[in-house]
Amino acid sequence: MSMNIDSKLNNENSFWDISLRGELDVSTADKLKEHLHNLADEKILDMKINLENLDYIDSTGLGAMIGVLKKLKTDNKEIYIINPKSNVKKIFTITGLDKIFKVEG
């Protein structure tokens, strides 16, 4: 399965608005990692990642997000996880990452 990433800079509120669609796993994690790091290199801002169309996430996908979060945290920025499906939200809860990321919805 593949994953699509849409992102845009929200200048009004100063954050990256990112939407993921498909499956975030070992075959797509590097794509996400590269994309998020490029955004952070362009401008260090909070990232709001909308997961309402993400069907699946595994540990490599979580790892990609953790790596970018560490980079953002050096400038006191956060990653907000928005609208995760119940199966995806469950992974954040089971791993305790719902305490590290700001999970909403």
Results as ranks from 00 to 15, higher is better:
M1D: 12
M1Y: 11
D6K: 12
D6S: 11
L9D: 05
E12V: 09
F15S: 08
F15T: 09
D17Q: 14
S19W: 03
L20E: 02
R21N: 14
E23I: 00
E23G: 01
L24S: 03
V26G: 02
V26H: 13
S27M: 01
T28G: 00
A29L: 01
D30G: 00
K31R: 04
K33W: 00
H35A: 13
L36C: 11
H37F: 12
A40S: 10
D41W: 00
L45D: 04
D46M: 00
M47C: 10
K48C: 01
I49G: 00
L51E: 04
L54H: 08
Y56W: 06
G61Y: 07
G61W: 01
A64G: 08
M65Y: 03
I66T: 01
G67N: 08
G67Y: 03
K71F: 13
L72F: 05
L72D: 02
T74F: 03
T74Y: 04
D75F: 10
N76C: 05
E78H: 12
I79M: 13
I81C: 09
I81T: 08
I81P: 10
I81K: 09
I82S: 02
N83E: 11
N83I: 01
P84W: 07
K85T: 08
K85Q: 15
V88A: 06
K89Q: 12
K89E: 14
K90R: 15
F92R: 05
T93R: 13
I94Q: 04
V103N: 12
V103A: 11
V103Y: 09
E104R: 12
G105T: 08
